[in-house]
Design a protein around this nucleic acid. Structure first.
Lengths: 198, 198
DNA sequence: ACGCTAAAAGCAAATAATTTGCGTTAATGG
DNA sequence: CCATTAACGCAAATTATTTGCTTTTAGCGT
């Protein structure tokens, strides 16, 4: 039932895995995901279906496996010169990617799988990107919230809305960033006076 | 492909639906969800498999349909006498339910379905419960955050962690509640005059 | 480099799930 | 109460999945 990188990452196995992944990506471009079946993928990949069944168990696991690769960030967060700018730009891009049809589908695939290792990987990817922004901020001497604070304050609300309702507006996303940054510099309870003038 | 309450809610249809739902719940108690199949459910429910295929399309949709019913709140939020107490108690209970094995499975089922109507329903359930707490708070003259603020600040972080990593600790959950309540007074929703003129 | 061992792939037969056409039952509306 | 037709049941046809066995080949020791 497990997914992939367990044993024998050598030549043929790797080739088969790559071929199957490519087949999935290729098929998902052309057709509705409801019509993608394992025999179809096997034919496209030039392998026998039982290979896929034995390696991934179910279509869901294979889709999750492919999806997590596509969700892996392929570039560094853009450096805008300030922590606020970096986080704003990154957040907007992240939100756009995740709320697009493709992003939603991939997230569904990752969450639908029995094995939640892939979901954990996605979380790790996001944390890494934020950590990079945080490192840059600290190198500049700027304050920056804990990764967890950004996850709770920015990432979680965005993902929740995408999964359970509709797409978060760009305004709301900006507010999330503003709020989490506002809570940063003094990491202590805010005095009432500051709250009232807010 | 849609799920259920579309047409003909009359006698037999309702009976079949109830029977199938019961069969699913019953089977999920005894066996691993990976082993639950539509023919099995059909046998347990005393209906023919094609009925299930035509009505729900895939196992995933049926499971989502059953799951959303089980996620429907079955009681009012406990009244502790204060807004903070109400929200704390409700949040802890919610978190416990959702991070339990059953809660996770049901959430997965709801999110895995193609049709996201069920996911929206879950969101609506949660909002209703929070709205009840908010109403009580306002009736007592207490301030209470916007529903959206609670969703973003409390519910979303809990759900995100459950879905993408491990279970949030009770301490973190308490902090989430504390933070969202601390941020409240700025957005005081209703002056007393508004209530009177209603 | 060469051979050994076993993991991973292929093949094909057996089993199980899904789809589909058609006749039957029974809700709904007049 | 009758007409209409959505929803169900049944069974045959199709398609997907599992499984036993054989073949290929990666990983490892010599």
């Amino acid at each position: 039932m497990p997914a992939k990188e367990n044993l024998r990452p050598g030549g043929r196995s790797a080739r088969v895995q790559a071929s199957v992944h490519n087949a999935v990506r290729s098929l998902l471009k052309t057709m509705d995901r409801a019509d993608v079946t394992i025999p179809l993928i096997a034919a496209e990949a030039g392998v026998t279906p039982s290979t896929i069944y034995r390696r991934w168990g179910e279509l869901q696991e294979l889709l999750a496996d492919v999806a997590v690769e596509r969700l892996r960030p392929d570039m560094l967060p853009i450096d805008t010169g300030s922590a606020r700018g970096d986080l704003e730009v990154w957040t907007e891009q992240y939100c756009e990617e995740m709320s697009s049809g493709i992003g939603r589908d991939m997230m569904r695939d990752v969450l639908a799988a029995q094995d939640n290792a892939n979901a954990c990987k996605c979380d790790a990817f996001t944390r890494e990107q934020i950590a990079l922004i945080a490192d840059r901020a600290h190198a500049r001497g700027e304050a920056f919230p804990d990764i967890d604070a950004v996850m709770d304050g920015v990432v979680a609300p965005i993902i929740y809305r995408i999964l359970f309702g509709d797409q978060p507006s760009i305004e709301r996303v900006r507010n999330l960033v503003t709020d989490v940054l506002a809570a940063t510099p003094t990491r202590q309870p805010q005095p009432a006076s500051a709250l009232i003038s807010g």
